[in-house]
Amino acid sequence: MKLAIVVPRLTDEIVGGAELLALWLAQRLLKVGHHVEVLTTCAVDHYTWKNVLPPGLDRIGNVPVRRYPADKRDIGMFAQLEHAIQAQYTLSREEELLWLRNGVVSSALEADLAKRASSYDAILALPYLFGTTYFAYATAPDRTVVIPCLHDEAYARLGVVAEMLGGARGLMFNSAPEAELALRFQRSLAPSTVVGAGFDPPGPTDSELARRLYDLPELFLLYVGRLEGGKNVPLLLENFLRYRERRGTELSLVLLGSGDVKFPAKRGIRQLQIDWRHRDSVYAAATVLCQPSRMESFSIVMMQAWLAERPIIVHAESPVTRGHCEQSNGGLWFSIYPEFEEVLDRLLRSAQLRRTLGRQGREFVLREYSWPAVLSRLETALSSWFERSREPVPALKS
């Protein structure tokens, strides 16, 4: 098949989940013989969306990447509408489209896609939250498969999101709880399936090498990801400091990532930057991984930690991460501090429990999220949706 993947930004240094998924899918689909190119903007920063990369054809490894200038934004208008959405005011369709237009969009990308849409067998657009995704769908609804990466948040309740969930040619979810969530926002979903992201078993890991290179403690709780309030990092910091004070333990918290969350310069908390070639060895050295986010459509770091046979603690209010722990028997969950304390106590008391949960998590990832399993689900869905005879749907007015 000839496929386009539309994503708001993409470089080989961006580590956001949707961007990684877009890049990984492009790489793997190319590897098995499909023709794939990525359509994206010249922006890198997901706060400003300023154009910093040159437009035109680029490559990331073997992946062709077509870059288009992001449109100028009215940041004041965007902020005003953003505030209204967060406050759960009802916006008109015109206001919702105005919010999307002043987020990240590219008129040049849309115009080129309108000209060339018929040359693609399918257009995969992700994630749901950005104008690049909606307007790719609006340009060619009958060829667009949306990979929503949906969260239970105010944006997901917009009318334009329900429209896209119902009108796309197909939907590819990352997990079953995400698919169930979509039904709360649109009762008449487009044809859909659960695909997810794929993973290879890691090569040999060396936890002792990781300890020496990064001066890692013997016992530590690991967090990997953006240090942002939306990822619930402040709650993790609060719970960890309370646990350390109550238990008088030498357990450390290692934060692998960057962001705007400020944390106290207290003993036991450390922010770490690593050579990503050592990522799996750092996972293997960790005692437990904590993924505290309530809003995930899929957690890449959980799968990576399970492949390194590490147990995981997640927030009970995240249907996706808790669901994966329940399916795999690879982790435990908490909602309030006493539960966090009890779960961590259990894991620290029993090395056998940690090993058992870690092994069960690894078996789950290899069974459900190997690349052969993921690509089989994706190809089966595309073949089904695009082999059906169906009258072309005109582009939507935007």
Rank of each mutant, 00 (worst) to 15 (best):
E178C: 02
S175W: 06
M164I: 11
A182E: 09
M164V: 10
L181R: 11
S188N: 14
G167A: 11
A168C: 12
H151W: 10
A182M: 09
E163T: 14
L150Q: 07
E163F: 07
A176Q: 15
E163R: 14
R157A: 15
A168I: 09
D152Q: 13
G170L: 02
A168Q: 05
M172E: 11
F185W: 12
M172N: 03
P177G: 09
A176V: 15
L183S: 13
N174I: 01
A162E: 11
S175E: 04
L165T: 08
L165W: 01
L183V: 09
G159K: 12
A162Y: 01
G170A: 13
A156F: 02
G170F: 00
M164N: 10
L150E: 04
R184F: 01
L158I: 09
E153S: 05
A176S: 12
A168K: 04
E153T: 06
E180C: 03
A168W: 02
L181N: 06
M164S: 06
S188Y: 09
P177T: 11
S188D: 13
A154R: 09
A162T: 12
C149T: 13
L171G: 05
L158K: 04
A179H: 05
N174C: 14
L171F: 02
V161L: 07
A168V: 07
Y155C: 02
L158V: 08
E178M: 08
G167P: 09
E180P: 00
R184S: 14
F185H: 15
M172T: 12
E163P: 00
F173V: 10
R184P: 00
P177K: 09
L181S: 07
H151G: 01
G170D: 11
S175A: 15
V160D: 02
F173H: 06
S175R: 03
A156C: 06
L158W: 00
S188Q: 14
R169Q: 11
A154S: 15
E180L: 14
A162K: 13
G159C: 08
E153R: 12
H151P: 00
Y155D: 06
A154N: 11
E178P: 00
C149P: 01
D152N: 15
L158C: 11
S175K: 06
A168S: 15
P177A: 07
A182C: 07
V160P: 00
E153C: 05
A156P: 00
S175G: 03
M164L: 13
S175D: 02
L165V: 08
G159N: 14
N174K: 08
N174M: 14
A162C: 03
A176D: 11
G166S: 12
G170W: 01
G159D: 14
L181K: 08
R184M: 06
V161W: 01
L158Q: 13
A176M: 10
L165F: 02
R184C: 10
E180R: 15
Y155V: 08
E178Q: 03
G170Q: 08
V160M: 06
G170Y: 02
R169C: 07
V160W: 15
Q186W: 01
G166A: 10
F173Q: 06
A179V: 05
F185M: 12
C149W: 01
A182F: 01
A154H: 12
